[in-house]
Design a binder for these strands. Structure first.
Lengths: 205, 205
DNA sequence: CAATTATGCGAATAATTGCTCACATTCACA
DNA sequence: TGTGAATGTGAGCAATTATTCGCATAATTG
């Protein structure tokens, strides 16, 4: 049960090799979203990418590294999207900012829903990747900053909860085949603003 | 890519065979929570169960069937737990009932957290199992009934959202190693009551 | 008690998969 | 243009895995 290596083997220098790398990643993504992680074998990825296995192994030590790279890519995207939304919301009301950010998060989930879902599942079975951990923290920080900017107490902890709540609702709704994105945005907004407005205290037994 | 069979091959009749079945399921559960689904092989399960592979295959057509059975068991448990909580909450205030149900759901997630998480991931990669689908619907119905009993409009849709929200927050918190269960219960309660209290309307663009 | 049925066994086989390596091709650069 | 570095190839070996099948043991039944 040796931990699989998640870092790429070497970074492509020439354009040709960059294309190879990209093709491998894209092929893996497609297999993943169409058939799930159990169908992801190095030989299949290479074939689908129009590349030989040898080339694949030149850049990735194994399939876990390919998956890890896809995950990092997704998270980097997410952070960028959310940062942009947070910036747009600067000087806006809390409600407007929430709507902007919720819409951004949703859009992110909607670009390649199956891929995002598959990668999330895979991530849980892989050793923790340092950069991925950082990126997740960064996401929470972005949210926390927005909250703090509107004078909300305990911003860090609240940010954690809001991110988790939104993630839960978006995933479930998208998985259930929800098509009404505007409606879903409203439901997310309702959850977020509701949480913010509700009494933090209350007797638990 | 033939769909794996998820139903057990035959039902054990004698006590001896019931024990074999149970041993297989428990062994699979232990491997799953300790090492994840990639480590779950039929031979390993049989060995860990103190049973031969042949016996395993007598009752399960493959490992997917074992996993499916574990999933069904977990869901059946969940429905029972939640029904009990809903019954206990009858004649109580909405807030109290929410607290009871939230606590029940949490307790459920906490008995074998790693197992529950692993099974959820596995479920997403398996063909949809009829009974599992039913059970998930049943869970939402239980919540919807409670909501309707308190005169909440659109109970079905709200139930969907509340279940999703709670699932999201519990999973994230438990995964993050949250130990303060009382505190977590309060946060869940806050999310639920907040959602219920917040304006369902609001302008989305 | 047979005789029938249920249960259990595990070596052996077939299929899959990860991964390497010896060799070919292309590129960068003096 | 030539030479070393970078890149690409894919047959094939090693290891893992799923699954079967002939046979032994235990329970049930009549």
């Amino acid at each position: 049960m040796t931990e699989p290596e998640l870092r790429p083997r070497k970074t492509p220098l020439q354009t040709r090799s960059k294309a190879t790398c990209a093709a491998v990643l894209e092929a893996a993504a497609r297999i993943l979203e169409a058939e799930g992680s159990h169908a992801l074998t190095t030989n299949r990825v290479a074939e689908r990418a129009g590349v030989s296995v040898g080339s694949l192994y030149q850049y990735f030590p194994g399939k876990e590294a390919i998956l890890a790279e896809l995950i990092r890519g997704l998270r980097r995207d997410m952070v960028l999207t959310m940062r942009r939304a947070a910036d747009l919301g600067r000087e806006e009301s809390l409600a407007s900012t929430v709507e902007l950010m919720v819409a951004a998060a949703l859009e992110h989930h909607l670009t390649r829903p199956e891929l995002a879902r598959a990668l999330e599942r895979v991530e849980a079975e892989l050793p923790v990747d340092a950069e991925t951990r950082e990126l997740k923290g960064e996401l929470r920080n972005i949210v926390a900053d927005v909250l703090a900017g509107h004078g909300i107490a305990d911003a860090e902890s609240v940010a954690f909860d809001l991110v988790a709540l939104c993630h839960g609702l978006s995933s479930a709704a998208i998985e259930a085949g929800e098509k009404d994105i505007n409606g879903l945005t409203l439901r997310l907004k309702r959850a977020v603003l509701g949480y913010l407005v509700a009494e933090p205290a209350g007797t638990s037994r």
